[in-house]
Simulated assay, not measured.
Amino acid sequence: MSAEPAPRPAGDRPRTPGARVALLVNPSAGAGRGAALGRAATQRLRALGHDVHDVSAADGSAAARAAADAVGATGADRPDALVVVGGDGMVHLGVGAVAHTGVPLGVVPAGTGNDIARAWGLPGDPVAAVDTLDACLRAGWVAPFDAVRVDDPGSAEERPAWVGGVVAAGFDAVVNERANGWRWPRGAARYNLAIARELPVFRPVPYRLVLDGEEWRTEGLLVAVANTGSYGGGMRIAPDATPDDGLLDVVVVTPVSLPRFVRLFPKVYDGTHVDVDAVEVRRARTVEVHVDAGGRHPRRIVAYGDGERLGELPRRFTAVPGAVAVLTPRAA
């Protein structure tokens, strides 16, 4: 595997009274509030004297290319920051664009969960978030946080993806995959229906996990690889995970009966599920997740990171310290 490129230093151009900002908006975030919040953020940042360039695009693939192009600009065209307006999916896109570039990432939370922004110490209120961004841009408050590099352990050529928060690779990922195949219903109802459809038919998965070179074979209902503590709008899947310790928390729910799994599930909202004997938590810098070829399982498992589709297992996840620079008052 090739070595990681050295990050370029943030703020390598002289500071000006206002910053050059590339802004990326998810118009559908927050049940359709994203577009209005994006316009408001643009107007507010411009009123505060910043040079804002909207690089939003029609779909996720185009937005990822636009963000990468903006961050990759040179000289006077290089932004002082990339700012995303949306939920964890937009933060995911932003992390992928700025990882190992030194261009800071700013977030205006506009989704229904905003778990990553919360882990980075950012305000949940969009108006307060814009004013916080202004303060961070002017004062140079930038903090380094870990990101998760994702690649295929069987391919040295594949371009890695990046995750800011939590990877789902079990029941929760299967629910995501099923829900994303439906156009109706919309919003949370679609995921609730997918859960109801999956619960009676899902079977434990025979996993082969490799944690910093040590193999761990286990059956599991759920495997999460966590850089931050929560996902899905406040589910504290890995309550002790922090995005600046260089480690990933690996949470495995071993096979239990359906009634017990249903009783266990609500505990994830306060993090007390990790105290149950069916839940095991380990830590590592690098984690490979395979579906054990020797076991029989009728489903292929597709991993999701920050709620976004990463691809079918196996996948390797590596905590990369300081891979993303974030505009946050934690740096004050």
Rank of each mutant, 00 (worst) to 15 (best):
S2V: 12
P7I: 01
P7K: 02
R8K: 15
D12E: 11
A22T: 05
L24S: 15
S28E: 15
A29P: 11
R33Y: 03
L37Y: 02
A40K: 15
R44L: 13
L45P: 06
R46S: 13
D51S: 12
D51R: 13
S56L: 06
S61R: 13
R65G: 13
A67V: 06
A68P: 01
A70G: 02
G72R: 02
G75R: 03
A76F: 03
V83P: 03
V85T: 02
L93G: 09
G96S: 09
A99E: 08
T101M: 03
V103K: 11
P109T: 02
A110C: 08
G113Y: 08
G113P: 14
G113N: 15
N114L: 11
A117H: 04
R118V: 04
A119I: 03
A119K: 00
W120G: 15
T132C: 15
D134M: 05
A135L: 13
R138Q: 11
A139L: 11
V142L: 03
P144G: 06
P144A: 07
D146E: 08
A147W: 08
R149K: 13
R149L: 07
D152Y: 08
D152C: 15
E157D: 14
W162V: 12
W162G: 14
G164C: 02
G165Y: 01
G165V: 05
D172N: 11
R178L: 12
N180S: 11
G181F: 06
P185V: 03
P185A: 05
A189I: 10
A196M: 05
R197S: 09
E198A: 10
P206R: 00
R208A: 12
R208S: 12
L209D: 11
G213H: 12
G213I: 15
E214F: 07
W216M: 09
R217Q: 15
G220R: 00
L222S: 10
A224G: 04
V225G: 02
N227P: 06
G232N: 06
G233W: 00
G234L: 03
M235R: 01
R236N: 08
A238C: 03
A238S: 04
P239Y: 10
T242S: 13
D245S: 09
L248I: 05
V251K: 02
V253D: 10
T254Q: 14
P255L: 05
V256A: 04
S257D: 07
S257Y: 01
F261I: 05
P266R: 06
P266S: 08
G271H: 05
D275W: 09
V281R: 10
V281L: 03
T286R: 15
V289N: 07
V291C: 10
G294E: 14
R296C: 15
H297I: 08
A303V: 10
G305T: 05
E308N: 12
R309T: 10
E312L: 06
L313D: 04
P314N: 05
R316W: 02
T318E: 14
A319Q: 01
V320F: 08
A323E: 00
V324H: 00
L327N: 02
L327W: 09
T328M: 10
R330Y: 01
A332H: 14
